[in-house]
Structures are given as structure tokens and as C-alpha cells.
Design a protein around this nucleic acid. Structure first.
Lengths: 127, 127
DNA sequence: CCGCATCCAAGCCGATACTG
DNA sequence: CAGTATCGGCTTGGATGCGG
């Protein structure tokens, strides 16, 4: 595999960029990463996710799951029962995302104090 | 170091979350990752960055650099000359970000086709 | 040359009400 | 239970003009 140049991959205009910006947008949006982390341990129902994410609206849970399904990161299985039952699970593609996301999370955890200190210093200097 | 739980780290409300959400927001915004990638090879001047990022406005380059400086990822050095000269460089903290970001970029590059195919399938099924 | 200030457009997100 | 529809606010980002 050719080693990608991060610079090219981050551009929105570049033809060689592929869809890296789309991934960064998904990573950066408000709920996607939390939903993915909740699906790590196995399939979950819509209502189960909702009750485990305080503060999310029905609309945003629906929208987030639809986007993740469109991107191929999450699978949606609806059972034709009454009452209806729908299960969401990480796809095999979604599984592979766990590693780079985990790396980012570990980084953020490791340097969170340094990060916060820098912000405090910056805000202090301007107050 | 304690292994962080991604789930907790992604929540906005959790006390234990630290500032992982802040990092994801920065990673996800429109220009930050591109600016960081341009600073990988050494310090750059404001104008040099501007001319190398087609489509960015002066305002957004300034705002992006300020946010990165506040987060401690980028350092800003201004030389008291006329005309003024300002150089931006990756801080040591910013250097450490290259690895997890690179992992994400490699992931996106590796699976970009699968990703695009999934979107096409999804959109097709609804058209 | 390097930015800040202002105004404005677009998109993300939340609240609420309603449906199979 | 698992959504859809609509509205409205808030934040992000773009265009332009001015200042050190």
C-alpha cells in the first residue's frame, strides 16, 4: 500500500484526497464517536442507545445512525415484529475503525492535562 | 497509564471525559488538520500557509491558527520587524499528534473505496 | 505583511408534535 | 418501539473593509 500524504488527504479540493475529509467530518461531529464506542461490545437496540446517551434527541440519534449506516460503518437490522425491533451493530468496516480511534483517544487522554494547561495559560494572558 | 474507555472519553457531560471532545472537535473542523500537516516539515509564515491553502479566507486561517495555539499544538513567533513577520511551527505537543492523525489518515486511505461504495449503494437504494 | 472587526449565509443541532 | 416532519436557534465559516 502506498503511504498516503496526510496533507493531500486533508484537502477538500484535491482529486487524490479520496474521502478523508468525510471521515474527519464524521469523527468530529457531535455524536458519532460516542455511538460507535457504545456499539463496540455488541449490537444494541435504538431505545437502548437512546437511554444510554443522555442529552441526545430522537432526531439526532436517528440522523447519526443513518449517516453511520450510509458510510458503511454500522449495520441496521429491523425485525418485522410488533412492536418493531431494530438492532444496530458495527460492520466489519466499523470494527477496523476502533484501532485508529482508540489511538486518538489514548493520545487525548495522555496529554489532556498539558492541553488544558495551555488553554488556561492562553486565556489568562488575554484576560 | 490507565487504559481509557473510549466511551467515557467521547461524552461531553462526563467528568472523567477530560478534553477528548475538544480534540475531536479540532480534528473535525474544516482546516486544522490541513494546517498541521503543512507544518510537519518545519515552520511556516502566515502568507506561505495562506498561499498553500487555496480556498481558505484570511479570517479562517487566523482563527484556525489561534485555536491551535490556544490548544498548545502550534507555537506563534512574531518578529518585531517592518514589515512584520510571523512564523508558526508545530509544538512538541503538536509533534506527538502526528502519529494518531497519521493512523486515521492511513485508515481513511485504505478503506476509501469501500466507504464510497457504501454511500453509493445507500443513495442508490433510496433514489 | 499580518491580522482584527463586522456582517451575513449555510448547516448542525435541539424541541416538539405526530405516525406505523 | 422506532422513527418522521417541522420549526427555530446557535455555531461555523465566508466576504469585505480597516488597522498596526
Amino acid at each position: 500500500m502506498i503511504e498516503p500524504d496526510i496533507e493531500q488527504l486533508c484537502r477538500r479540493d484535491s482529486e487524490t484526497a479520496g474521502h478523508v475529509r468525510d471521515i474527519l467530518d464524521r469523527v468530529g461531529d457531535k455524536w458519532s464517536m460516542l455511538v460507535i464506542s457504545l456499539l463496540e461490545h455488541g449490537p444494541r437496540r435504538y431505545g437502548s442507545l437512546a437511554s444510554d446517551i443522555p442529552g441526545i434527541s430522537q432526531r439526532m440519534l436517528t440522523v447519526t445512525l443513518q449517516r453511520l449506516e450510509r458510510d458503511g460503518l454500522v449495520t441496521r437490522t429491523s425485525f418485522p415484529e410488533i412492536p418493531p425491533r431494530v438492532e444496530y451493530a458495527l460492520s466489519s468496516l466499523g470494527e477496523t475503525l476502533k484501532e485508529p480511534i482508540g489511538a486518538l483517544a489514548r493520545w487525548a487522554y495522555q496529554y489532556k492535562d498539558e492541553f488544558a494547561a495551555s488553554r488556561d495559560r492562553y486565556d489568562e494572558a488575554r484576560a
